[in-house]
Design a protein around this nucleic acid. Structure first.
Lengths: 231, 231
DNA sequence: GTCTATAGGCTGATAGAC
DNA sequence: GTCTATCAGCCTATAGAC
């Protein structure tokens, strides 16, 4: 009884070192790879199990269905994007706020390309699992940021552009370096993209957006090194 | 004998009205839908056959394997994009050439969104069938257009931006209206995108690129109506 | 919690009558 | 050219021994 009590104490599900937690992580990161490479239908629980180093039945012990795995992966994906997006504030200088946002989005394409591809796949397929999220939370958050762009325009800090479309373009331009990496690599003659490539991308997209939207350059120090043109 | 000769005359494979030709078209346009919605792995020959109004075995009579159907669909997809891309000429005024290219790309997202989604899926999966094309023909064609951008910059017609990346951004920004249509519709509160939405997109992306790259406005008549701001 | 064995269903593709 | 019937294989998911 004493022993049983101790064991159940140190292996509770929330424990960061429980077997359950470790296997959960193994399965989810294997699943992220497979879903990114093959899409939902192309992915098999067998391959997820193999990459996680577990028997298939064990995977189904932790996640009853393939869709459950997919849902868990999906919810882990959005957080960093939303965080970067939420950081845009009305009090910010537009140059800083947009520049930082674009740079952060490009770096997420560098650091978590699989996440970007899974999301892209989900959108292309018509958002079968994310449509509710799109129509509720995301809409509200975008509305708020659209309001900020309109304020900036009204105060003469930038041109009165169509604000939703600015986000569409920023999202597309930054995520293309993850989603279409093969194409980008092929055209730049790279085996894989370098840090310099991502810097060039971030600097160029920032220039395009700031100049293109007529954003007044701020006086304050930026702390941002200038572009190292790499092509 | 006479009859047989006549029949074989009017039903040759190249004949635009032969049964073979009609069924080929039925299968390929059904396949375009299914591949766009489900991806290569998610698509089934059964569903392609159903939407084409043919028994599955009949589909396999025209195309031996699913991959054969996919290849046929894929090759029909790229032509309009490449045509628009090839139209960019060194003699053109950059304002005209880039503006026309962007507008054409946006209109292709409107008119052939399925094609865009199939291509996006192919890229996300690492271009299993298109990688050879990417590394040969496309690379050469892009190189040529990159040269044109460099010439324009050297002649002071635009800023010296990283030319490859300008194409990456234009491709991403224009294609997002097809690939991520669900997201765009959700945020714009539309059931489907209107002609006005596509006009706004084309005008905005054009402004962003032309202003952002410091393209000198041309003096010549443009024949292009100005943006009807819709959002 | 782990894992072998297997159920039950769907898939791509073909055989062969018409 | 058309289409029914069918095969071999793989898939998700579970049963049940350990």
């Amino acid at each position: 009884m004493t022993k049983h009590a101790r064991v159940s104490e140190t292996s509770r599900h929330g424990d960061a070192h429980s077997v359950r937690m470790r296997n959960n992580i193994k399965i989810l990161s294997a699943a992220e790879e497979v879903f990114a490479e093959k899409g939902f239908d192309g992915a098999t629980t067998q391959e997820i199990a193999d990459r996680a180093g577990l028997p298939k039945a064990n995977v189904h012990y932790y996640f009853r269905t393939k869709k459950d795995i997919y849902l868990a992966v999906m919810s882990s994906i959005m957080a960093p994007w939303l965080e970067a997006f939420q950081a845009i504030s009305a009090e910010d200088d537009p140059t800083e706020a947009l520049g930082n946002y674009i740079r952060r989005k490009v770096m997420l394409s560098k650091e978590r390309p699989l996440a970007s591809r899974i999301f892209a796949n989900e959108m292309i397929r018509g958002a079968p699992v994310l449509s509710e999220f799109l129509n509720s939370d995301l809409n509200d958050w975008v509305d708020e940021k659209v309001g900020i762009l309109r304020q900036w325009a009204k105060r003469g800090k930038m041109d009165p552009i169509p604000p939703h479309h600015l986000f569409f373009v920023i999202w597309a331009a930054t995520q293309t370096y993850a989603d279409f990496e093969v194409q980008v690599c092929s055209i730049l003659r790279r085996d894989r993209l370098t840090s310099g490539d991502f810097d060039t991308a971030a600097d160029f997209i920032t220039t395009l957006v700031l100049k293109g939207c007529g954003v007044r350059p701020s006086d304050q120090k930026t702390g941002r090194r200038s572009a190292k043109r790499t092509t």
